[in-house]
Amino acid sequence: MGTGLKRKDLLGTRDLSPEEIGLILDTAISMKEIASRDIKKVPTLRGKTIINLFYEPSTRTRTSFEIAGKWMSADVINISTSSSSVVKGETLKDTGLTLQAMHPDVVVIRHSAAGAPQILAGLLKASVINAGDGAHEHPTQALLDLFTIREKRGTLAGLKVAIVGDILHSRVARSNIFAMQKMGMQVRVCGPPTMLPRYMDRLGVEVFSRIEPAIADVDIIMMLRIQLERQGGGLFPTLREYSKLFGLNLDRLKAAKQDVLIMHPGPINRGVEISPEVADGPYSLILNQVENGVAIRMAVLYLLAGGQAAAN
């Protein structure tokens, strides 16, 4: 007896039900086992075509989707727009329709404009997966974060999380807030006032502008990267000052619980938002997150493309 995700696309965690989230996490458990085999191959998506359409640079997410697709025998094509006709001025719509004419089964898109995946989803028959759209959502990141926490702690409900950093520009924070609250977790956000959205508390999160009270008695601390390429200036005086006030180092960790878990979506700025000792320390789940990213993306690809669940 199965259920499947009764949807064509995965655009965000905001409209996922707790049951759907649970299904994706449970499926990822089975997928993770494949990574431990000698022959990392199952025939499930044989003959399916997956196109990774990345308008923004990425190491983790794109490689993760590529490996996930290939381990399931799909044909994966990577388009990084810096070397495509987009530099000639081709619009998103035309790019989408061009790809549609080649009959992909799944298009994974990362774009700097919020809503771009939704536009593509309306245009294409293929399943569209949002790999990050502007500051809006990054659903597979939130799902792999939940998976990592659940794997370590056994459960999700009742856990307290503090997300620290540039909340204003963070799609990872948003997707995590929606997903975590659905699974019964309590979320706090923390950052300099210049990087905290004005009505943040309306999302049901506690807002802190100092890190020490934010991380006291939480079970998980999630650090966000200071996005050097996003801001010209004016949001913080210097990296050094940011690090001094909001960086996570061993000293600051003394304010937190003994067994607190440390997470970071990557890539980390060593010595800025997180010190090397904390990033490489025993309670850091940063590399677990990366490993689980492949399993979660395999689960999402399987649930959307492994069968004609919703498309017809």
Partner: peptide
Amino acid sequence: LYRDDLGKAETQPVV
């Protein structure tokens, strides 16, 4: 993951 009827069933089997 090895079934030959994925996509034929109305609902997807749980892995």
